[in-house]
Structures are given as C-alpha cells and as structure tokens.
Design a protein around this nucleic acid. Structure first.
Length: 298
DNA sequence: AGCCAGGAGATTT
DNA sequence: AAATCTCATGGC
C-alpha cells in the first residue's frame, strides 16, 4: 500500500470537485465512495488504481490500494502529474473569481461551488468520443451509451469487489464496423464518427501532442472541426475538458443556454447574441464560466 | 404523447 | 452564406 500527499492551492476545495465526479450514478470511468474518488489511470508503469481523498486542508492524499511494495519515484511523479492535470491544479483561477464578483450571472454559481476546477479528461480519444456521444441526446442516455461502450470494448480490473474500467483504445475501436456500435445503441452516424476518429489516432494523424503544438485556440479548433463528426461544440468541449483552454467556449451548448435561462429567469432561451453579450465579462475564462453554470443545473 | 436533449452534416434557398 | 432538413433514440 503506497500513500503520498499532494498540496492544493487555496482556491481549490476537494468537496465540489468530488461532487462533480459524483454527478451521475451511471458514470463508469471512476468510483466515488466515502468522500474519496477512485480511478484506474494509465501510466508508463501500467494501469494504476488510485484513490484520492482530502486528508487535511489543502492536502490531497493519494493511495494505491493494489500495490503493496514501494513504487519508483518516477511512477509517483507521473501520478502526481495526472492529479495536477485532472483537477487543473496548476491554474491560478483568482482572476476568474475576481471577475465573477461583479457578474450577476456567475456570482451565485461561484458561491455555490467555490473551489471547483474544470475536471479534465486527459485522454484525447476519451474526450472526443464523450463529446460525440453527448451530441444531441440527453445526458442520462449519454452516460448509458458511454457505459455500454466502455464495458463492451474497454478493459477492467477488479479490486475489493469493485470493477474499474479503462477507456477503449483507438486501436480496438479502429477495427470495428459501424454495426458493432449500433448494437449498443449508437446511431449509425455516431458509429462512423467514432470509428473514423479511432483510425485517425491510430495512424498518428490526430494526437493530443500534435494539437498542443498548434499556436492557439482558433488553430486547434480549425484543425479539429475538419474532422468528420467534430463541429464547433465538440471542438470547444475538447479544448475545455482535454486541452484545458480556460477560454474555450462551447457557446451552442444547450446546458449552458438552459443554465442562463434559468439563472436569469428568462421566458425564452437566450439567443446566441445575448450569450455573447453576457460573455463579454468572462473574457479568457469562458470555459470556467460554462463549467460553473453547468453545475447550477445538474 | 410529444417535446426535448451538453449537434453535425447535408441539402436547399 | 444562411436557413432548413435529416439523422435517430431515450428521458421525462
């Protein structure tokens, strides 16, 4: 059993982040129980089951319940890096909190979920496919589809009676035919999108590393939206959740639209232009604004 | 029962 | 270019 701790910034609190991870009972990529999160994460030392909890103020405690002997420093560093990415720990979000103070829309959301970070989806393939799955269907069904996808094509390990899954690899999915996915209730189109993206990653034509080499957000958005199945919403969703651009902005998101409508008690959904007007105050923090507003709904 | 859902691509105007 | 149509299936 290995245990070590990771300090967190003062603007980070574990509770709202854990609440986000726990937002849907059908979530299959991690497990929440007893104020701690557990997840099987890929490392160069193999898939590693980690447990995360807050052991003291501003301190995360990481436990590796399935490994009894001490792990190499490099392995611990890799896990620490994963946690930093997962919870966006390296970002100074005080400017966001500063602008939210005078924003009538954001202020209540920030108050209610103070300490929340944009929880990332470090794996590009997982982020893209989760985006595609979520297109134009309700979130509850999206979780059902993801679970069926993961449990049919992913790999798992079981520890202490709980099964942990890794997301299917592009290599596995690239070999499928659309029929393999329509049987688990993907539409034909989503099946084609999914397999097409798996092939692009398998051949190396698409990679997180290559996207990160591009100069700025518009360049990455342009590169992503060339790919069949990835429109502006999905591109910005991935920029937000995987590439961690705080100014990514999935402006057409129906959840964002409904959150604004509800918060401002509007009779009708806000238009795109109305949202753009509101978002002028969120400059460079649109992704964080969106993420916090989502939390007011789900 | 009927509208809606964390859209995108194709087609038509 | 911009507006409209089609995809398609579950949730409530």
């Amino acid at each position: 059993m290995n245990t070590f701790t990771i300090p967190t910034p003062p603007t980070f609190r574990f509770a709202p982040n854990l609440a986000y991870l726990n937002r849907d009972p059908k979530e299959c990529m991690h497990h929440i129980q007893n104020d701690q999160g557990s997840k099987l994460i890929p490392t160069s030392h193999g898939n590693t089951l980690i447990q995360v909890r807050e052991s003291a103020p501003n301190t995360l405690q990481i436990t590796l319940p399935a490994i009894t002997s001490p792990i190499p420093t490099s392995h611990q560093q890799e896990i620490t890096q994963y946690i930093h990415d997962w919870f966006d720990l390296d970002r100074d979000i005080t400017p966001f909190y500063q602008l939210a103070k005078t924003d009538t829309l954001l202020h209540p959301a920030v108050q209610a979920h103070y300490g929340l970070r944009i929880i990332s989806i470090p794996d590009l393939f997982e982020a893209l496919i989760w985006g595609i799955i979520g297109q134009q269907i309700n979130l509850s069904f999206a979780y059902t589809l993801k679970r069926q996808f993961v449990e049919k094509f992913g790999t798992s390990t079981t520890h202490a009676g709980i099964t942990y899954w890794t997301f299917p690899t592009p290599a596995t999915i690239a070999k499928l035919t659309p029929e393999d996915l329509t049987t688990i209730q993907f539409t034909t189109r989503k099946s084609e999108y999914t397999i097409g993206i798996a092939k692009l990653i398998t051949t190396g034509e698409l990679s997180k590393q290559a996207l990160q080499q591009l100069p700025d957000l518009p360049a990455i958005e342009k590169s992503l939206t060339k790919i069949r199945g990835i429109g502006p919403w999905t591109a910005n969703y991935v920029l937000m959740r995987c590439l961690r651009y705080p100014n990514a902005f999935p402006i057409d998101d129906i959840g964002l639209i409904n959150a604004i409508k509800h918060a401002l008690q509007m009779e009708q959904k806000p238009t795109k232009q109305e949202i753009l007007n509101l978002a002028q105050n969120w400059s460079n923090w649109e992704a964080y604004a969106t993420f916090y507003l989502w939390r007011t709904l789900y």
